[in-house]
Design a protein around this nucleic acid. Structure first.
Length: 355
DNA sequence: AGCTCTGTTCAC
DNA sequence: GTGAACAGAGC
C-alpha cells in the first residue's frame, strides 16, 4: 500500500510538473511567483482532494451488476498516461501479493452474488483517483466556489485569503470585513511591506503632512496598483457611491490572488447580487477588508493598517517610532516625550528670545 | 457640500 | 502604550 500511495503522489507530481506547476510555495519567492503558484496549485489541490475522497457514483447511475475489471480500468488509464506504466508495473507486484486475498473476495462474490464494491473500491482507490484526475486534467476543474459568488473581478487577493469554509455570514451592519482584521494585518502587511515600502513617500520622515500639501493628491500615485489599472485616477481607493443594496463579499475571496497587490480587488461588488447597504455605514469601502467609511480620509488612514505604512514618525531624536495615525503620534509625544517637549519648548523659547 | 485635520474614545 | 475608528472643527 505504501508503494501505491507513493505512486499516487508521484502522479500528482508528474502531472503538475508537466504543466509547469510549482508544488510548494517558497517563502522567499517573489510574490508574483507565489501567487502564480497559489493560483495554479489550487486546481491541482482540488483535484487531489477529490481524488482522496472515495468516488461516489452519480445518483442517476443505476447499479451495475459488476464493476469493470481492474485491468480494464488500468488499460484505459494506461492508454492516456503511458508515463505511469512503470509505476503501475511496480504496483502490479503489490497486486500479486494481494492476489490471494482478491481471489478470496471474488470467490465470495461468486458465491453470494453481491457486489463487493466496498472491498474493491478502497483497494483500488488510488487507481480510480488517478482516472478521475485524468479526466480532470482534460476538463477544467470546477473551482470550489459558492454558486452565488459573483465574480466581477477575479483579482481579489484580500478576500482570497479567506477560508471558504470559515467564511462568516456577511452583515454590513456588524462588520464589512470578510476577514478578521488581525488576519488582514498579518497577511497584507507582510505582503505590502515587502512591496510597497519602496513606493512610500520618501520625503521628510515627519512634516505637517506626510502626504504633502494635498494628501489626496499624493495618494493618487500608483502605490497600490503597480499595473496602474485601478487607482491612478482616483487614488488608492475608489470613491464608489454604494449601491442601495450592497452585496456581501463573495467567495471571490476564494479565487487565488493572482495579482501582485492586495488592493486591486474591489470589483467584486457586483450589480447583480446586492444586499441592502445602509448609507450610514459610509460610501468608501476598503477594497481589502470591505470595511466602510464615511470619509475618504478615514479610508486612507485605515489603509495604513493594511499596508503597514506609518508615515508619521516621531520627530524626537533617538525615538524611531512611527505611527499610521498622526494623532497617535502626537499622543505618543505627549505621553513619552512630555519632558522632552517641555525641554524643547524651553529651548525653543530661549532660542527665540535669544534671537 | 465635501474634504482634511485633530482630538477623543475604545479595544487590546 | 499603541492601533484603530469616530466625530467635531475648520477650510
Amino acid at each position: 500500500m505504501e508503494d501505491r500511495r507513493q505512486a499516487h503522489e508521484y502522479y500528482y507530481l508528474y502531472s503538475s510538473l508537466d504543466q509547469g506547476r510549482p508544488q510548494q510555495h517558497h517563502p522567499e519567492l517573489p510574490r508574483a511567483v507565489v501567487t502564480n503558484a497559489y493560483s495554479s496549485h489550487q486546481p491541482a489541490r482540488y483535484a487531489y482532494a477529490r481524488a482522496q475522497s472515495p468516488p461516489s457514483p452519480p445518483a442517476e447511475e443505476p447499479p451495475k451488476p459488476s464493476l469493470p475489471s481492474i485491468s480494464s480500468l488500468l488499460g484505459i488509464a494506461a492508454g492516456e498516461r503511458a508515463n505511469l506504466e512503470s509505476v503501475h508495473q511496480a504496483q502490479m507486484h503489490q497486486q500479486q501479493q494481494q492476489q490471494q486475498e482478491q481471489e478470496l473476495v471474488q470467490r465470495h462474490r461468486h458465491q453470494t452474488g453481491v457486489l463487493l464494491q466496498q472491498q474493491e473500491i478502497p483497494m483500488n482507490r488510488s487507481y480510480a483517483a488517478e482516472i478521475v484526475d485524468v479526466a480532470k486534467t482534460t476538463l477544467p476543474p470546477t473551482p470550489p466556489m459558492r454558486p452565488d459568488s459573483a465574480i466581477v473581478d477575479h483579482q481579489s487577493p484580500a478576500t482570497s485569503m479567506q477560508s471558504p469554509v470559515s467564511a462568516p455570514p456577511y452583515y454590513l451592519g456588524s462588520a464589512l470585513n470578510n476577514m478578521e482584521p488581525h488576519e488582514q494585518r498579518v497577511v497584507t502587511t507582510q505582503l505590502a511591506k515587502r512591496h510597497s515600502v519602496p513606493s512610500q513617500p520618501s520625503g521628510s520622515p515627519y512634516s505637517t503632512s506626510p502626504y504633502g500639501s494635498s494628501p489626496g493628491a499624493q495618494s493618487t500615485t500608483s502605490f497600490y496598483s503597480p499595473d496602474g489599472r485601478l487607482f491612478n485616477s482616483n487614488g488608492p481607493y475608489h470613491q464608489r457611491p454604494l449601491p442601495t443594496n450592497f452585496p456581501p463579499p463573495t467567495p471571490v475571496a476564494l479565487s487565488p490572488p493572482n495579482t501582485s497587490t492586495p488592493f486591486q480587488h474591489h470589483h467584486y461588488i457586483g450589480s447583480s447580487s446586492q444586499a441592502g447597504f445602509p448609507q450610514s455605514q459610509g460610501r468608501y469601502i476598503c477594497p481589502t477588508c470591505n470595511k466602510a467609511f464615511s470619509r475618504p480620509s478615514s479610508l486612507r488612514i485605515h489603509s495604513h493598517s493594511h499596508t503597514g505604512e506609518k508615515p508619521f514618525k516621531c520627530p524626537h531624536l533617538g525615538c524611531g517610532k512611527a505611527f499610521s495615525v498622526r494623532s497617535n503620534m502626537k499622543r505618543h509625544e505627549r505621553g513619552c516625550h512630555a519632558a522632552d517637549n517641555i525641554d524643547s519648548n524651553v529651548s525653543t523659547v530661549t532660542t527665540v528670545s535669544a534671537a
